[in-house]
């Protein structure tokens, strides 16, 4: 906020001139960067395809309708695999995330100098790489199939779960821990009585939340050969079997909606 004097009259402005100029300059630079970026995309695009897009979309849409309902018979098994990848992946991730979280939380870490950085490194590297990339890698190592997808999902989830969990651990009420310590309880007993009960609600919430995300992610893992319904999607896309593609997309959408509903219900019941 500033007041300047013009022709002997005081004028109120929200910002003084320098700040205003800086803001304009930032906008200018921002716009220039955006235009440059846009040009990059534009150069890499065949615009003829773009203008043709409505026709192609209508064409694909026409072919995809109606979905080939009879294909559903072949989808039950991959759907079951997808569910298993998501659920078991979440369970495995949680089992590994708990120790990592305890090592990463400032108030429970055995050593803030050595153990904590390692735990944080595990969390960061697991979090910054998408599960599809993990799957890509694991398919090369473990061979295509559900197992690679399962491991990919759990590796990706460790960081996410451990991060939320260690934040929950750092927020606990220390006086309850102190009280249990004062009774002469051992380190593990303090953990079981003083800390665990306090983080249980957070733990349950994180588990359900991540399960929901994992179900979404495991629907596409098949695209790189890591099992689940994505495998059928990839096959149908490769053979341009659009009625099957539309059915699969419909099933995926339905699965996502159901999982969201389930996780909302469970979360409501816990909290």
């Amino acid at each position: 906020m500033a007041i300047s004097t013009l022709d002997g009259q005081k004028i109120w402005q929200r910002r003084d001139r320098d700040v205003q100029l800086k803001i304009w300059a930032m906008w200018l630079v921002g716009t220039a960067i955006f235009m440059w970026c846009w040009q990059q995309i534009s150069e890499a695009t065949t615009w003829a395809f773009f203008w043709d897009a409505p026709r192609i979309a209508a064409d694909i849409g026409g072919r995809a309708m109606p979905p080939r309902w009879s294909y559903m018979d072949k989808l039950w098994s991959p759907l079951w695999d997808t569910l298993n990848i998501a659920t078991l992946g979440t369970v495995m991730a949680l089992m590994m995330a708990v120790p990592v979280a305890f090592m990463a939380a400032r108030n429970t870490t055995p050593s803030a100098l050595f153990v904590r950085p390692i735990a944080l490194l595990i969390i960061v590297s697991s979090r910054s790489i998408n599960s599809l990339i993990w799957a890509l890698l694991l398919v090369k190592i473990l061979g295509p199939g559900v197992f690679a997808g399962l491991i990919a999902i759990s590796i990706r989830s460790i960081g996410f779960c451990a991060k939320l969990l260690y934040e929950a651990i750092e927020e606990i009420d220390e006086s309850q821990v102190e009280a249990i310590t004062a009774t002469g309880a051992s380190r593990w007993q303090v953990m079981a009585y003083g800390i665990v009960p306090q983080i249980m609600p957070a733990f349950a919430g994180i588990a359900v939340f991540r399960w929901d995300i994992n179900l979404r992610e495991s629907t596409v893992l098949g695209l790189v050969g890591a099992g689940g319904i994505g495998l059928q999607l990839q096959g149908s896309l490769n053979t341009l079997a659009w009625p099957q593609v539309s059915l699969i997309l419909l099933v995926i959408l339905l699965a996502v909606v159901v999982s969201e509903w389930v996780s909302a219900k469970v979360r409501g019941a816990i909290i």
Partner: peptide, 15 residues
Amino acid sequence: RRRMGMIFQEYALVE
């Protein structure tokens, strides 16, 4: 520590 019982200000029960 077992021989020293402690009672706290904000009760410090595990809620």
